[in-house]
Design a protein around this nucleic acid. Structure first.
Lengths: 126, 126
DNA sequence: TAAACATATGAATAATTGTTCATATAAAGA
DNA sequence: TCTTTATATGAACAATTATTCATATGTTTA
């Protein structure tokens, strides 16, 4: 039996065979649940914040735009590691960049990022 | 430390051997950088949002308090998987719970969580 | 054009983590 | 107390991912 078939069966049986589901709640919430893909995108978005190197990068960029080497120096990490992470941040549109000669300056792409960082800080400081 | 000593040190650390660091920026930001541990905690906090199962749980709990089995039914997943993830959410204080007989009802622990979810939704919807 | 330099990227490795399975705990009822 | 049931948890496996090393790309300057 495949994983999917097994779960199908569980669902038919009421997932937890003997469990008491609160059907009104389940029905009500099912109606307003965003589609699978949207929730998946949302978790991918937050995954970007879930790494200490990237959080540090976001934090320092919230103070000032910076080039790759500035960041590497500040965080005492290799240029390559920073560059790899900047790519992730770029792909998820958390940072934007401008080129000035050989140097590439990065900065936060919009205000949501700052708000999210601030809310997170508040939460862990409680 | 002189400019020369600084570069010497960077070279030893292997950070940006030949690179031109914008020292004013680095110095300025270094002063306001939270300590290592705080940034580590912050990334651990956001890591919790970075999994689609947990995002789904948070989302459904933003609509109504719910027991483990309700969530498992809604998300079409096994009881054990949900329970494991609820533990993670509990440990990071993203959800709280109350016991009513055999049943345990979970709900979001505070408003930051909703704010963060909403900001994330806005970002990915742009 | 050649050399120097700032950044980017592919491959490999090491570490982390989500789900399942089996089982344990805890509460309620017979 | 013994059984039923809702939830919790340990171990194992599979999958994901962050960093390093080596090298490539693209920009400036000699």
């Amino acid at each position: 039996m495949t994983e999917h078939e097994r779960i199908e069966q569980e669902v038919q049986e009421g997932v937890c065979e003997f469990m008491h589901v609160h059907q009104e709640i389940v029905d009500k919430v099912e109606k307003v649940l965003p589609d699978e893909q949207q929730l998946l995108d949302l978790s991918e978005f937050f995954k970007v914040f879930g790494d200490s190197t990237r959080i540090k990068i976001l934090y320092v960029l919230s103070q000032s735009e910076m080039c790759v080497c500035d960041i590497a120096t500040l965080l005492q990490m290799g240029q390559s590691a920073i560059s790899h992470q900047l790519r992730v941040l770029k792909q998820m549109r958390l940072v934007k960049f401008r080129r000035d000669g050989k140097t590439v300056f990065y900065s936060l792409s919009d205000d949501h990022i700052q708000t999210i960082l601030a809310q997170g800080m508040e939460h862990i400081s409680e």
